[in-house]
Each structure stands twice: as C-alpha cells, then as structure tokens.
Design a protein around this nucleic acid. Structure first.
Length: 511
RNA sequence: GGGGGCGUAGCUCAGCUGGUAGAGCAAGGGACUUUUAAUCCCUAGGUCGUGGGUUCGAGUCCCACCGCCCUCACCA
C-alpha cells in the first residue's frame, strides 16, 4: 500500500545494520567503477530453457548460455562459489571459480542474496548431479539494498523446500512485491489468473462477443443493490459514483445494435470486507441479443467448465474433501421448489410470519428476522434453507420478482423472474437473467425501488431516466450474465481468501 | 459495528506463577577450488505495536489506542 510519509526519511543511522552492509558494498562497487544498476542484459536462455538445452545436448558439457535472475542461494567457499539464480521460469545453479572468472570473481565479495545478476558460461553437471553454469562472466544487474524476507530453500525431490520464510499475512499483502519475490507459488496463482482471464476473452470473442469499456465514473449508479463509493468532479462540480455494476451501460449498447458485448473490469462496492469480498473486484458481464436466460445457462456452463479444463486439465476438482464435478450440464433447482423440498415452506403462499417462524427454527436471530419482510424475507429463507446444500455446481432458477428489478417477468408465472444464479460450494458465482426490455415495466420497477428506499432500504437502485429512454427506442430481447472473476479464481487456484487472488487487496494504511 | 486471537532481532519463533530478553536462519570478520538448508571458528544485532496505569520491579498484569487474522452482523 502507500508508503508512510516517514518511510523515505529514515536516516543512515536508523537503517538496519543489514542494509548498511549492502549500501557499503554498493559504495565499494561504485568506487571501483562498477555500476550497481545496469541497463540491460542479453539473456540467451531462461533457467528452464537452459536445463532443457543441456538435456538436448547429451554430452558432458552442454551449450554456452547467458542467464539472468535474482540470487536466491549463495554458497561461497574461498576460491569457488556456488549460487542459485531464480528467474520467472525457475532456478539454475551457477559455479564460480576464481581461476576462470579473473577480475569478475572480485565482484563476488560485493554480492548479496537478492541481487539481480547475469551469468554466462557453459553448462555442465556437478558431482552431485545438478546441471550448472560454469561462469565465464559475471555481471551485476541490480543491487538489492534491502534483504527480502526469505527463508532458506533447498532443492527437494518435489521442488524447492523452504524453511522459515515470509509467513505474516499482513506483511504479505502490504508488501506483495516481497511476497511474490520469495514465493514462486504465489506468482503461479497470478499466472493462472491471467491465463484464465485470457481464455475467457478468447471464449467470448470466439462466440462473436465484442469487448467494450463503459464508464467507471458514473453520474448515477445502478445494475446491482449495493452502496456506492462517491467522489467529486471538480470541473463539473458534481458528485460522481464509482460503478457498482456495468449492466445498465451494456444494455444501452444492445439498444445501439451491438448484439453481443462483454466487459471485464472493476466494480466498487462500499461494504464490508471478508474472505469473499474486496471493495473493488473484477466482474465479467456479458449480454447477448435475441437470447434468454436459458441461453445464458449454456454460456455459463461452457465458460466455467472451459476455464477449469483449460487451467487445470480436468473437470473434477478436489476441494475440502469433496469432489466438485464441473461436467456440463450443471444441476438445476427452482428457487421455490428447492425451498419447499427442504422446508415444507411454499414461498408462493407462505405468510411473513410463517417464514419468520421457520427462520427462528433454523437459529436465525429473531430480531433480525422480524425486520425483514416480503422479498428480503424470501431471500433469507433461501439462504438458510437451500444455499448450504448447493455444493456441486448448481443453477438456482426463477427468483421472486421483488428481488430482481432488472430481470424480465417469468413467461409462465408473473410472481417470478427469469433469473438464475450459479452456486458452487454454497457460494454464488454467477447471476443472470432474461433482461427486462419493456420500458414501462422497467419504469415501474424503478419506482418500486424508490419507494423501498423511502421505506428505509438503503441498497436500492436509483431511478435512471436515461436508461428508460434507451429502452424506449427498443432493446432486443436478451440474456445477460455477471460472473465474479475473483471468486472463480479462488475456485480455480484453490485459495481460501479473495485476498489471495487479488494482487493488492484493500488494507488500512500502515500506522 | 459485536465477539475472540495475535503483534518480541531483517525473517520464523521461544520467553512458565512479574525479577532489566533467547534460538535458528539472515548479517559482519576468518578458513575452505564440485557445494546445494554447505561446513567450521569468532562477532555484532532489540524503545518486546503505541500510550497510560498497577508494582520496589512489566515482554509478562490492567486500561485505551493502532494494525492484522478468525468469527458474527452487513453484503446479489
């Protein structure tokens, strides 16, 4: 996060003795005319490419290589030294000899763990069996003046094993650069994330979707029920909201004739933070003209199973002792039927008091239950009764109308909407509907939201008259879907906290 | 916001019923031409999160504050 104002003002005397030693080495290098921060290095191989090149050569001595990376292990022994370099691909050992390096060997005394160096030389296999570069030239590329909080690492049978190391979660999130630098497995999480998102783009592009960008700063927020962040535009002297969803802008594009659009970007919601909520998070929204929520189910099945297969090579994931099977088609359960099958409550006919009684019997705080009514009470019943059962990928269909002000009324039941959510492991992953495109119906739904706000519901959607005007021009029937990318990444990368799939999660500033 | 836990050397952690702080790794000096958590000898390293209080004496007990984690509430 932001560096505290005093951080840069730490004087030499206050710096740790470890850092002082590194600065002394830098000064000694520069006094000898050696730059501690080079401009570039002509690398011939990554560490992994070098290892492969040695195997391909099939001789005692392999090819000459020039590799670059960070020093992650340093074992000087008088007139020789071994060190390990780490680059983006992996690790490679280098063997340094005074009689082969000449003047470059003197540089060794000024090197530290964490420095970036370049090494060139011929590959060979040591007596201990490790493919290693016999250094003919050694170049300092960037001096590390502050030691990384790393543990000691040795090569194990199943990859490097680290002892000690960076454990403190606060330090890991605040100094993600250090976390990444010392934890290849954290780098891997974010490599997989990037791979997943680019696969999603290819998937949607392949279906003829157009990737678009809509405003993050909005004069009116909408498209979801959430409290927004508010900011101020100086030149216009007006408040602006950071978007809580892309929905209303993307549907304007359907009016404009862009039949298939999607956006991947950040939404901002001014609400609590926990292991599945960060104030800014990555949302995918996609809209398809002439489609309905049934088509969106097919789209979501293809997208979710495809990204899992692409990233992990399987559709069956072991998570917390259960096997999650993402082979389409996913299970389907109707909202009202699902509740009735598990509670003998029929949401179609149940009174508020019957629902409150049920909630109390399921250990919901009676005071809280008493505050809810109508749609929100139905939603609470659903959360208590049905949600925990939705472990395998399951579509929940046909939500009650009051909960879904942007969804089209169900074609066979006016009390419901054509909407589904995808649940996995009891957690929501996607939300989709047949999009409401009747401007008069949409106007009434907005008005209902305004009434709810007046009644004290502080997470309603404001009345967006420009959106109504757009619908009046005629929006084609369409299906739309939103998928929380961070939660999908938690599933793919098997991470328990959203903070572990966001590079720089929100934190209070350092005191 | 409620409840619980944690904060000690650069990192990972000990530190009992209160008696002025300890280890491993990292660091500095020395030895060492195939090591790999290299090894061996020596050395240095701390406002115990911050501020109060109790006490002859506080890392330890009490209070407040700061930060992080867990949990509940909130949350499409």
């Amino acid at each position: 996060m932001t560096t505290g104002p005093n951080e840069g003002a730490v004087g030499e005397a206050e710096r740790s003795f470890v850092e002082a030693a590194r600065r002394d080495k830098r000064a000694a290098l520069e006094a000898a005319g050696v730059s501690a921060f080079a401009y570039r290095y002509e690398r011939s191989h990554t560490a992994t490419q070098a290892l492969a090149a040695y195997e391909d050569a099939m001789g005692d001595d392999g090819p000459a290589v020039a590799v670059a990376g960070r020093i992650v292990g340093l074992r000087p022994q008088g007139k020789t030294a071994f060190l390990h370099l780490e680059d983006v691909s992996g690790r490679l050992q280098a063997y340094l000899r005074r009689d082969q390096l000449g003047e470059d060997y003197a540089l060794l005394e000024r090197l530290d763990l964490d420095d970036h160096i370049g090494v060139s030389g011929v590959l060979f296999r040591t007596r201990a069996g490790e493919v290693t570069v016999r250094a003919q030239a050694l170049t300092l590329l960037a001096k590390s003046l502050r030691p990384l909080p790393r543990g000691k690492t040795q090569a194990g049978a199943e990859g490097p094993v680290t002892y000690g190391g960076l454990q403190d979660p606060e330090l890991r999130y605040r100094q993600r650069y250090a976390d990444l630098a010392v934890h290849p497995e954290v780098r891997e999480v974010f490599r997989v994330r990037s791979q997943a998102i680019s696969w999603i783009r290819r998937y949607l592009d392949g279906l003829g979707f157009l990737e678009v960008e809509t405003p993050v700063l909005q004069p009116l927020y909408g498209g979801a029920a959430a409290r927004p962040f508010v900011t101020h535009h100086n030149a216009l002297d007006m408040p602006l909201y950071l978007r809580i969803a892309d929905e209303l802008y993307l549907k304007r594009l359907l009016v404009g004739g862009l039949e298939r659009v999607y956006e991947i970007g950040h939404d901002f919601r001014n609400e609590g933070m926990d292991r599945t909520h960060n104030p800014e998070f990555t949302m995918l929204e996609a809209y398809q003209a002439y489609a309905d929520y049934g088509d969106m189910m097919t789209l979501v099945e293809g997208l979710v199973s495809g990204v899992i297969q692409h990233c992990l090579g399987t559709l069956r994931l072991e998570r917390h002792g259960t096997t999650l099977d993402f082979t389409p088609p996913f299970a389907r359960v109707q909202f009202i039927e699902g509740v009735r099958a598990r509670s003998e409550i029929d949401l179609r006919t149940a009174t508020d008091e019957q629902m409150r009684t049920l909630l109390r019997s399921r250990r919901v705080d009676p005071e809280q239950a008493a505050q809810l009514s109508g749609g929100r009470l139905q939603d609470e019943v659903f959360k208590v009764v049905l949600e925990p059962d939705l472990v395998q990928p399951t579509f929940v269909l046909d939500y009650p109308k009051p909960l879904s002000p942007l969804a089209k009324e169900h074609r066979s039941d006016p009390a419901l909407t054509e909407r589904f959510e995808l649940f996995v492991g009891g957690r929501e992953f996607a939300n989709a509907f047949s999009e409401l495109n009747d401007p008069d119906d949409q106007r009434r739904r907005f008005e209902d939201q305004v009434h709810q706000k007046a009644a004290g519901n502080d997470e309603t959607q404001p009345y967006d008259s420009d959106f109504i005007r757009a619908l009046e021009y005629g929006m084609p029937p369409a299906g739309g879907v939103g998928i929380g990318i961070d939660r999908l990444m938690m599933l793919v990368a098997d991470q328990a906290s959203i903070r572990d799939v966001i590079l720089f999660p929100a934190m209070r500033p350092e005191g």
